[in-house]
């Protein structure tokens, strides 16, 4: 465990130093970050200008969903995207060989090797939005709501990560899976709005097939005090199932790894 923590510290510090090596590029990245932030605020302002209800969600409550989505998007951009979109290059160029020969879990290496600060402003914005809007809906936030919210948010991150990693694992056979990852991101963008905003058939699809509902809607419901233990339990169960599935599937995929030719 200590070895993994120490490795993680070095993974992230080297990733940041490698990015700081190109000062101009880092500056551009900072400007791009501000751009993304302004974009998110603009989308929010569209919400404000309408002010109508989505299903049985008031726009303030819907704003909590938007906050959770922004937070998840920030986490995706900081932790998931820089790592999981690289897996295809590891396979294509054959540098996965080096990873597989290290006495460390290869899934851990591929999922945490690098980090990008580009999602940090979104994470801050997401958090502020969740706190501000949920405060307006329920007049003060309860500690137990926050605790349950954190659990369901953690489950959401695990589900999102596991789903993405599952798709990335298929790289072993198909080598290029960029398209599949883009489709996944587009579907996850539907988590911007409460599941109630969609027609019943899509609602079912987003709950049972692609668990988008558990990514944004469920955590939002938890912090708003609509605590439904069945949903929380399902969320936990989904995260455990998907995470284990991703681990099992990765190990299975590796049996078919043929390594790039030299």
């Amino acid at each position: 465990m200590k070895r993994y923590l120490l490795s993680l510290r070095l993974f992230w510090t080297t990733a940041l130093s490698a990015q700081l090596e190109y000062r101009f590029n880092f500056l551009i990245e900072l400007i791009a970050m501000l751009g993304t932030l302004l974009g998110s605020v603009f989308i929010l302002s569209l919400f404000f200008s309408h002010g109508n209800k989505i299903g049985d969600w008031t726009w303030e409550a819907a704003l909590v969903v938007q906050g959770v989505y922004t937070l998840l998007d920030g986490i995706t951009n900081t932790f998931l995207k820089p790592n999981l979109s690289e897996i295809v290059n590891y396979v294509r160029e054959g540098t996965l060989d080096f990873v597989l020969l290290k006495p460390i879990d290869s899934q851990f290496w591929l999922s945490t090797r690098t980090i990008s600060p580009s999602g940090l402003p979104e994470i801050c914005l997401g958090f502020s939005l969740i706190i501000w809007s949920s405060n307006r809906v329920s007049n003060g936030i309860h500690f137990d709501h926050i605790a349950i919210f954190i659990i369901s948010l953690f489950c959401a991150i695990i589900i999102l990560y596991s789903f993405w990693f599952l798709i990335a694992s298929t790289t072993i056979w198909f080598v290029k899976t960029w398209n599949a990852t883009e489709v996944l991101r587009a579907v996850l963008a539907s988590g911007r709005y409460p599941v109630a905003a969609y027609p019943p058939s899509l609602r079912l699809f987003f709950t049972l097939v692609l668990p988008v509902a558990f990514l944004t809607t469920v955590p939002a419901q938890m912090i708003l005090g609509n605590i439904n233990l069945l949903k929380l339990f399902t969320s936990l169960l989904f995260s455990i199932i998907f995470f284990n599935l991703s681990r099992y599937f990765w190990k299975f995929a590796l049996r078919f790894y043929t390594s790039a030719s030299s």
């Binding site: 070895r3 120490l6 490795s7 510290r9 070095l10 993974f11 080297t14 130093s17 490698a18 090596e21 190109y22 160029e93 054959g94 540098t95 060989d97 080096f98 020969l101 290290k102 006495p103 460390i104 290496w109 030299s262």
Partner: peptide, 30 residues
């Protein structure tokens, strides 16, 4: 894995933008 190593002349594991020392430290930690 601690007993073996593989060196490939046409592939590299060093971090391209950082001094080799940084890559060595990562490997040592791993």
């Amino acid at each position: 894995l601690k007993e073996i190593t593989l060196v490939m002349g046409q592939k590299q594991q060093l971090i391209w933008d950082l001094p080799p020392m940084d890559s060595f430290q990562v490997n040592a930690a791993v």
